[in-house]
């Protein structure tokens, strides 16, 4: 029979024994080692959208779907274009049929459930297109809420998803205020725009930037003062989406309107 003194002694040794390896886990955190090895990243990928140049052709959406193997007919997309029409009565009409994969082929506004709203040209006071994609937030809520660490931010700022580790709980989808995340129809894991990480890390442009005939989309490195995108962001009046969530989005917009959702 174990007596109280021995019990307490053994418990103390046991706890100390368990604590030591736990402390070791803290010491060998892989991201810290990686950070120490490579130093601070010289890159911070950012995106610039010039809404004045966007015509809503949807070539970017098409290119993205093909490049990133998002089933073409699935009603989900890594990037999309929104149309905003404000009429003289001050009303806002907005839509994004199929994420504008095929562009905006009709002037009617989609209302969902197969319904459309006819708007007469003379009633329109202002109208414009806004391309959307993942904001690669500096403070990404999706990374914060992932229970298994399957989504993570790399040192150059891009948020990636590990398809082999994602459990498909959908918490990141719920956590994103921009609605950029969805479940991949084939892999059934969380999916989102990653600035075509496989391309930009090889010196290429993203698929959408390459596909845009009007230069409405540009990608750049914020840590490079000579980068044309950086110059625009630093010197011109740019806006970001949903600042109030504190996510610090890194997709910057020229010509953002208060009506943009």
């Amino acid at each position: 029979m174990i007596n109280r003194r021995d019990f307490l002694k053994n418990t103390a040794i046991g706890i100390a024994g368990i604590t030591l390896p736990l402390a070791a886990f803290e010491i060998i955190r892989p991201e810290k080692i990686l950070a120490n090895m490579s130093g601070t990243s010289k890159t911070r990928w950012v995106f610039l959208v010039d809404t004045y140049k966007c015509v809503g052709c949807g070539l970017c959406v098409k290119a993205c779907k093909n490049e990133n193997e998002i089933p073409y007919d699935a009603n989900v997309t890594r990037t999309w274009v929104e149309r905003y029409v404000i009429t003289k009565d001050g009303k806002l009409h907005a839509d994004t049929p199929k994420g504008a994969r095929d562009g905006f082929t009709t002037s009617r506004i989609e209302l969902g459930q197969g319904k459309y709203e006819e708007i007469r040209d003379e009633d329109i006071i202002k109208a414009f297109f806004v391309p959307k994609l993942c904001n690669q937030c500096e403070n990404p809520p999706c990374v914060q809420v992932c229970p298994v660490g399957a989504t993570y931010q790399v040192p150059d700022g891009v948020v990636l998803v590990d398809r082999k580790w994602c459990i498909g709980c959908g918490y990141c989808i719920m956590g994103c205020p921009y609605g950029v995340r969805f479940f991949h129809p084939k892999y059934h894991t969380a999916e989102k725009c990653n600035f075509c990480y496989h391309r930009i890390t090889k010196g290429l442009k993203t698929a959408c930037v390459s596909a845009c005939p009007f230069g409405a989309r540009q990608i750049g490195n914020l840590k490079d003062p000579g980068d044309p995108v950086t110059k625009v962001i630093m010197t011109e009046r740019v806006g970001i989406l949903k600042e109030e969530y504190g996510t610090k989005p890194q997709v910057f917009y020229l010509g953002l309107d208060r009506e943009v959702k």
């Binding site: 009603n75 997309t77 907005a94 994004t96 459930q113 969805f182």
Partner: peptide, 9 residues
């Protein structure tokens, strides 16, 4: 079922 302006995803 979506109604009015809902993001595509």
């Amino acid at each position: 079922i979506k109604e009015l302006f809902v993001y595509p995803n």
